[in-house]
Amino acid sequence: MNKQKLESFCLKLPGSVHDYQIDWEADRYKVGGKIFAIIGCDSEGKPIITLKCDPHHSEQLRENYDGVIPGYYMNKNHWISIYFNTNIPEEILENLIFRSYELVFQKLPKKIQKQIKLQ
């Protein structure tokens, strides 16, 4: 997996916007002003992507794939971080990004959801 593909996929999602958080040294992807993906590095400088994830599903992912850890600097129950050099197939990673987006989108007020769908 490479950063450009991940960024491109994140930005294809309806209403998705990108910003860069200088303090975190991370690229953030948001929908409706809420983060659904973060691309940055861990404390050792290893690249990771952090995504919102159902707690039960995140446990299964950590058991099945090397390089999937509880969310780096995020709520450990609701976020996961995935190292770029992990063995997760690209299709599964794209599904995880989409699911993270959906989890965040579903929590947005209905008015904002409608505005995004109309874009």
Rank of each mutant, 00 (worst) to 15 (best):
R28E: 06
N95M: 11
D27W: 07
D23T: 11
Q60W: 04
N75W: 12
I116H: 08
I49W: 08
Y29H: 02
K34E: 11
K34V: 06
I69S: 03
P89M: 03
K52F: 00
V68A: 08
D23N: 14
E25T: 13
D54T: 04
G45W: 10
Y83L: 06
H57T: 07
A26P: 05
N2L: 04
H57G: 00
R99H: 09
L118S: 15
S8H: 14
K30E: 07
I116V: 08
K111E: 14
K114W: 12
F98C: 00
K117M: 12
N2E: 11
E91G: 00
N75T: 11
E102M: 12
I82F: 10
E25Y: 03
N64E: 15
L93D: 03
E94L: 04
K3S: 10
G67W: 06
M74D: 11
P70I: 05
N64Y: 15
K52C: 02
F36E: 09
E7G: 08
G45H: 08
I88S: 05
K114E: 15
E102G: 02
K46G: 04
G71Q: 09
D54Y: 05
C41V: 14
S81V: 07
K12D: 10
I48H: 14
E7I: 03
Y20V: 05
L61D: 08
L6F: 11
C41W: 00
S100D: 01
L103I: 15
K46H: 15
Q21K: 13
L13Q: 01
D27R: 05
L108C: 11
H78C: 02
F84Y: 14
N64R: 15
T86E: 12
E102Y: 06
L103V: 10
Q113P: 09
E91S: 03
L96D: 00
K5Y: 09
D27I: 03
E102N: 13
D27P: 00
I116E: 08
M1E: 00
V31C: 05
G15A: 06
Q115T: 07
N75P: 11
G33H: 09
Y65P: 02
V31S: 06
K46F: 12
C53Q: 10
N77C: 04
Y73Q: 14
N95H: 06
R99W: 04
P47I: 09
C10L: 07
S8T: 14
H18W: 07
E102W: 02
P47W: 14
W79K: 01
E44G: 06
L61S: 07
I48D: 13
S58H: 01
S100L: 03
S43V: 04
K117Q: 15
I35L: 11
Q4T: 13
K52E: 03
W24P: 01
A37P: 06
Q115F: 04
